[in-house]
Structure formats: C-alpha cells, structure tokens
C-alpha cells in the first residue's frame, strides 16, 4: 500500500487508543513508543506508565530509534511500538531469552521507511533546523525551505537500511496498527559505500577504515543503542586481561568495532541505529550490513524473522558451511 499522511494519522490514532486501553486495563505496566522530539523533524522515545501521556504518542517518518533496545532494562509487562526492523530485534531478544514473549504487547507499525534528515540536509544544503517542512505523499518527499520547495525520490532521502529493508511490516505483533506495507526494494541503491569498499584492495580497505576510526571518540553510542549489544559486561571493559586499550586510539577503535560486529553477527537486524547515532559519521553500516550478508550467504539465516528458529550461534548442523573449517 502506498504511503499517505492520512493513513499515517489513522495509525497514530489507533496507537493512542490501544496504548491507553492497555494501561487502563492493566494489561501492561508501561508503554514504550515515540513522542515529538525537541528538535525539528525528530522524535524521542517515550517510556511511560501514565495513561494521559499516550496522547503524545506519534507515528511519522522520523521514528528512528529501535525501541527494543530498552526491553532488557525495563521491568514488568511492556507495550512496545515496533516497526519491522524493531520487531526483528524483539524476536532476536526473545530467542536469546533476554525478554519473555508473554511480557510483551507488540504494537506493530507497518513501516514505509524512514527519512534520513542528514541526506535531506545534504540535498538542500541546509541544516535540520533551517528546513521548514519535510513531508511525504506516496513515493515523493517534499522539502520546504522558506518559499522554495523541492521534491525527492525515496532512494534519495530514505535511510540506506530502509531502502534495503526486507521486513517493513512486523512478523511478530499483538496488534497491527495499519495495513501491511511492502519493501521499498532499493537495496542496490543503498549499497554505495559497501560497493565502493568491496572494489578496493584489502590494503586500501584497511587504510580507509583506519582513517575513519581515527576520529572515533569511543562514546559507545553504537553499542549502547544496539539491541543486540546487551552484555552486562562488554569485552571492552575487561581489564584482567585487558582486551583493548580503553582510550580512543588506533588500532583499538577499529578493533573494538570489528569484535562488536562479530559479537552481534546472527543477531544484527540491519536496523541502522549504530550508523545513525555515530556523532562523527563513521559509516558503521558498511561493516554490519556486510556481516549480515555473509551470515545469510553462509548459513541462510536472517536474524529475528520468527521466534521458533534457534539463534544462529547456538544451532549447528553437521553439513553446514563446510568451507568454514578447512
């Protein structure tokens, strides 16, 4: 179904009703959703027990956070708003016994893709707060700056991971807030950085990544927004023995990310949060998406598709991936 603002506001209305009813009937202890952010074209997570606060819940093309990240740290029964990618993370957390399915009420959002404001900024040569309006109708995104108006296509302004999304409508949910959506199906258009890197020699790639990670601040936003990174004690904090230098320096910055990427392999759902939140714009998705594709190629495994499948790294079949061990 094509996107329209009217359908979206219907979905939002339904969400507010459902969320309020869940709290009123005591079916959940809290709601995790999105409310308008304090910046333009932004939302912020809303974690609330307050019935009245459900009136602030929103669904729009800026609901970027993968809210499943909060599940392992939130007590009680939870009503959670989930887009397709988020639902895959939720399923992955259920598979890993980090959260119980019966404690969740999943308010599924059939997603039509999210707008990457940094792409819009680059296209119109203005900063987020200088852009007056970004709206979507069908497959056209209209951006207004003052009296000027420009139109863009989905592949120009959607997040790369949205262009490559395979499951926009959650497979796991308790209520679906709208009609199912289909994938944008523009994976090829989103693979720019990855293709560029694959065309390089190993030495060139190494040089590229070393340069990128030189500006890493080790803020760990990539890890802390990742639902697959739920370890109580991260390897990077180990001191006896110390795995990596705890300070921002090369090659430790890059090593941290490589190890993190290996750790989340088979659980990463390509939600794109690591790359989005990196304050110094390191193209992290080029690493995670490559791992995602490798996992799929070697094991025919896509994480978080259904709760019945065993997690990739706990299941083994004798005839699988023979050429891994030579």
């Amino acid at each position: 179904m094509s996107y329209s603002a009217a359908k979206n506001s219907q979905m939002q209305k339904k969400l507010r009703q459902e969320a309020k009813a869940l709290l009123e009937q005591g079916k959940v202890d809290c709601i995790i959703g999105y409310e308008p952010g304090s910046l333009k074209h932004a939302t912020t997570p809303l974690i609330t027990k307050d019935k009245a606060a459900t009136e602030r819940l929103v669904i729009n093309p800026f609901i970027v956070n993968n809210l499943s990240n909060f599940l392992p740290y939130t007590k009680g029964r939870i009503g959670i708003v989930a887009k397709g990618c988020d639902s895959r993370s939720i399923v992955s957390l259920i598979q890993d016994n980090k959260v119980k399915r019966e404690d969740l009420f999943i308010l599924g959002v059939p997603c039509s893709g999210l707008i990457d404001v940094s792409k819009v900024e680059a296209l119109v040569g203005k900063y987020r707060d200088e852009i007056d309006d970004i709206s979507r109708q069908g497959d056209i995104i209209t951006v207004k700056v003052g009296a000027a108006k420009k139109e863009f296509s989905l592949s120009q302004v959607m997040f790369d991971n949205c262009l490559a999304c395979e499951l926009p409508t959650p497979a796991e949910y308790d209520v679906l807030l709208g009609e199912p959506t289909s994938p944008i199906g523009a994976a090829a258009e989103s693979a720019g950085k990855l293709d560029e890197l694959k065309a390089m020699t190993a030495a060139q790639r190494w040089a590229f990544w070393q340069n990128e990670f030189r500006r890493c601040t080790r803020c760990y936003a990539c890890r802390n927004v990742c639902p697959a990174c739920y370890c109580k004690r991260c390897f990077v904090d180990e001191t006896e023995p110390q795995w990596l230098a705890p300070m921002p320096q090369e090659p430790d910055n890059l090593m941290f990310q490589i190890i993190r990427n290996l750790h989340v392999s088979g659980r990463c759902t390509d939600c794109g949060e690591c790359e989005r939140t990196c304050p110094v714009n390191i193209p992290l998705r080029a690493l995670t998406r490559d791992m995602y594709d490798i996992v799929d190629e070697l094991f025919e495994f896509k994480s978080g598709m259904d709760t019945k499948t065993q997690p990739l790294l706990t299941a083994y079949e004798v005839d699988e991936a023979e050429d891994l061990v030579k």
């Binding site: 912020t44 997570p45 809303l46 974690i47 990240n69 909060f70 601040t217 080790r218 803020c219 760990y220 936003a221 890890r223 802390n224 927004v225 230098a245 705890p246 300070m247 939140t277 304050p279």
Partner: peptide, 25 residues
Amino acid sequence: SAKCVSCGVCTLLCPTCYCFDINDA
C-alpha cells in the same frame, strides 16, 4: 533518565566536561 542509553556523546563532546581517566599502555 528513562530514555538515556548511557553513551558518552553528551559528555565527551561537551565543551565543559573535563573528567579524565589514566591508563598505562
């Protein structure tokens, strides 16, 4: 603090935060 993810963005990139750690390499 409910929605804070405990990353270091707001402090490491704050112009006035000055806390530091000392480590031997």
